[in-house]
Write a protein that binds this DNA or RNA. Structure first.
Lengths: 88, 88, 88, 88
DNA sequence: GTGGTCTAGACCACA
DNA sequence: GTGGTCTAGACCACC
């Protein structure tokens, strides 16, 4: 289950991207593996976000070079995130 | 045994085509010889792919001019692959 | 139903070829149409002939240029027979 | 409406490819335009062929370099066919 | 909505 | 047995 806060300052798609990025960082979805499908993510969030929002979140991760979509197969992890923007 | 990864980014039929192309390249199946039959390939993959998908893989190799199907006989190697996509 | 006479002088495959040639001549199977499949012919003859014999009959018609097999589709009429060797 | 003959010698997917190639040749679908979608083609043929078979027909045209599929958009004409198999 | 991937069967001629 | 044809579905990302 993915918990998102509709009333938070952070946009839903950023929240979702953050959740997925963390999963990737912590190896819950290793490089080369598929992310949950858009439908699965929609279900995992309890329908809190639309498919359009999910797509936006995935675009964020794609822009970061972390994931890549493949027609008919799914969205795949292709790299680990850089160090978390932690205590710099 | 042929190991395919259903959850990989690469479509199953491309994975299978890659495996067979390598076998041809390395002379494990010389020019003029028959490939394993579609049923045998289905078994070799542990039933990971259907015959239709196997056919798609063979179509890839046929499009590359490497193999050719003969009615009631099998699929035969008719040429060696061009140089592997070099690691230059 | 196709009636063949096992005890006739004429070989079974010739008898069968004759039956089929007549059907073609009389337009029961027009040019461009498919003949009954080998299995269907086997059934039509009540199992009186083996598939090998059926194939031989079809080869006769193919040699006469009347029919042509197509992989995965069937055997097709491609021409009408010449005048029957009647009262020459 | 697209008329296909299930019982013809020519495979259904070849018949369909021929129809579409003619449409392209005669400018009914100009270069750069989209072909009817796979679902539309399924309907145009009166459901005579499955989507998989339609795809096979489109693969034929793609192999000839006439069309190209675009994800989520459709299949587009990218070139005119070479001279028709002349009646010389 | 679109095309791309994949399944699990069927029937066919041919060897 | 073999490969070639075809079906009637499914799920996926993408638009």
């Amino acid at each position: 289950m993915i918990e998102l806060d509709r009333d938070a300052m952070t946009p839903m798609y950023v929240q979702l991207a953050n959740v997925l990025r963390d999963r990737i960082r912590h190896g819950q979805i290793p490089v080369g593996r598929r992310l949950p499908s858009q439908s699965e993510l929609e279900a995992e969030t309890g329908g809190a976000v639309s498919r359009r929002t999910i797509k936006t979140a995935l675009e964020v991760l794609a822009d970061e070079g972390l994931v890549q979509g493949v027609q008919g197969k799914g969205v795949f992890v292709i790299a680990l995130p850089a160090n978390p923007p932690a205590s710099e």
